[in-house]
Write a protein that binds this DNA or RNA. Structure first.
Lengths: 242, 242
DNA sequence: TCAAAAGTGTTGTAACTACACCCATGA
DNA sequence: TCATGGGTGTAGTTACAACACTTTTGA
C-alpha cells in the first residue's frame, strides 16, 4: 500500500441516465445522439460530468435529466443503478459513471442539450435486438436498468406511475406487459392487482372505449410495496420482449 | 451546460468493503481502526483509494480485501453494493466511494494494513445497537450491505458459502438465522432447503455431536438461484437481530 | 429410560394458473 | 345479434406455517 505523502489518482465522475417511459404501450428509453467525440453521431444514454466539485451525484443526475429530457426532475422517481468504471470504457481518460434509473409516465418530447445533437425516445426492443447500438458500455447499463425496472414492478406500486392519474386495470396490465415483455391473463391480472390492499382504488367513474363493456377507472393508492407481490412469469427462453 | 474547453472537476475514488463472516453462529463484519486522520482511532470499514489511474474498481476492492483481511480474494463472492458520494462525507476533499459486499465462511484473523492500526471482526449487532459507532457514512453503508445480504439469502445459494465444505442442515439454518436475525422452524427448514433442486446434496456421511441423532452431512450443489426462494419472515418490529 | 437432536406426516390456508362463464356495451 | 372487452366462478396445484409425531443417538 502507498505510503505517507502519496496522493490517489483523480478520476472524472459522470452520471448516466436510464429513463424509461411508455408510449403507445411500448417501452421506450431516452437516447441522445452524441454531438461530440468520442462516438460522435452514435446514440447514447443521456448523462454528463459533475458540474462542480461539490455537486452531489444525484443532483447531477437530476440536472442532466432536466437539461436533456426537459423535465423537472425533483418529483421523479430516481434510483441508483450501479457504477461503471472499467478502465478504457471512455477513450478520453479515466471516467467513472454512476448510472441512475428514472421511470415516468408519458413524458414530453425531449429537448436537445448542448452535448446532445438530438434526443429521442427509442423502443427498448430496438436496442435488445441489436438494431440500434449504443456508445460506450451503455448497452450493458441499459440492460441492468431494464432488469431493475422489471424487478421493481413485482414488488412496488411503480407501475401506476406509468399511467395517467386515472386508469383502467387494462391500462395497468399493458404497463406490466410492456416492461416484462410477456402476455398476461387479463382475468387473473384483474383480481391480482385488486387483491393488493390499497394498491389501486376505484375512482367511481368509468371509461367507454368504443365497443365492449365500460371499464372502471382507478387511481393510485398509498401503498408502495406490494403484498403479495405480482410475480412475473418465469423467463423461459429469449427474454427479448415481444 | 458547460461549453467547449471546460474540464470536469476531478474526484478521488475509493472503495469500501462490507465483509461479513460467521463466527460461532453470530454475524460479524470486518472493521479496521483508523490509524490516520480523519476519524483517527475510530472503527471503519476497510477500504482505500484506487492505487493507480488505470486500476479497475473491483480490482481495487480485491486488493484491499487482500491487504486488510489477509485473504486471497480472487475466489471470493464480491458484489457491488452502491456508490456513496455526498459532498462533505470525507473532510479531506471530494471522495466518492464504491462499496462492495463480500461474504465468506470463517475467515482467518485479519491482518492490519498500513492505514489500519488494527483490524477485527465485530458482531453486527454492536453497530446496529449503536454501541459501536463507525467513521464517515459507514454505518449507512453497512446497513445497506446487511439488507443486501439478507435479500441474497432468499434467492441465491449464498448461505452454503458461509458453511464448511460439508455441513448439516442445522448448520445451514444457523446461517439464515444469524443473517436474518430471526428464529426458524427446524422441521420446515429441513424440508424447504431439500426441496430446492440441487441446492445441497448429501455427502453420505454423518456427523455425531454429543447426544441426539446423527445428522446427515451435505455439500453445496451447483444451483446458484433458489427456486422456490426461501422467503424470510416478515420483519415485524425491530429488525435488529437477536 | 430420558433428554436431545434428526427427520416425517398431516392439516389448513394463501396464492396462483387455467379456463369456463356471465355482463354490458357499440356497431 | 354479435363481436368485444369487462368482470366472476371455480377446480386443481404449489408453497407454506404450525405442530404432532417417530427415530436415533449419548448420557
Amino acid at each position: 500500500m502507498p505510503a505517507e505523502h502519496w496522493t490517489p489518482p483523480p478520476v472524472l465522475l459522470a452520471v448516466d441516465l436510464v429513463i424509461f417511459t411508455l408510449r403507445e404501450s411500448v417501452l421506450h428509453v431516452l437516447l441522445v445522439e452524441r454531438g461530440i467525440a468520442p462516438f460522435q453521431g452514435m446514440p447514447a444514454l443521456p448523462g454528463g460530468f459533475l458540474a462542480t466539485g461539490t455537486e452531489d451525484i444525484i443532483t447531477a443526475a437530476h440536472r442532466e435529466l432536466r437539461e436533456e429530457a426537459n423535465l423537472d426532475a425533483t418529483q421523479l422517481h430516481l434510483e441508483q443503478l450501479g457504477t461503471y468504471g472499467t478502465p478504457g470504457r471512455d477513450p478520453r481518460g479515466r471516467v467513472v459513471s454512476v448510472a441512475y434509473l428514472a421511470i415516468a409516465p408519458r413524458l414530453p418530447e425531449p429537448l436537445a442539450g448542448t452535448d446532445a445533437a438530438q434526443a429521442a425516445w427509442t423502443p427498448v426492443t430496438d436496442i435488445l435486438s441489436g438494431r440500434t447500438r449504443l456508445a460506450f458500455d451503455h448497452e450493458k447499463i441499459l440492460g441492468d436498468g431494464l432488469e431493475r425496472a422489471r424487478a421493481k414492478l413485482e414488488h412496488t406500486a411503480l407501475a401506476t406511475a406509468f399511467c395517467a392519474p386515472t386508469f383502467t386495470i387494462n391500462d395497468l396490465q399493458k404497463v406490466y406487459e410492456a416492461v416484462w415483455g410477456v402476455e398476461l391473463d387479463p382475468r387473473n391480472f384483474y383480481r391480482k392487482v385488486q387483491a393488493v390492499d390499497d394498491f389501486i382504488i376505484p375512482s367511481g367513474a368509468e371509461r367507454r372505449a368504443g365497443r365492449g363493456r365500460p371499464a372502471r377507472l382507478f387511481r393510485s393508492g398509498t401503498r408502495t410495496t406490494l403484498f403479495p407481490p405480482l410475480v412475473r412469469p418465469i423467463p423461459t427462453t429469449a427474454e427479448a420482449q415481444g
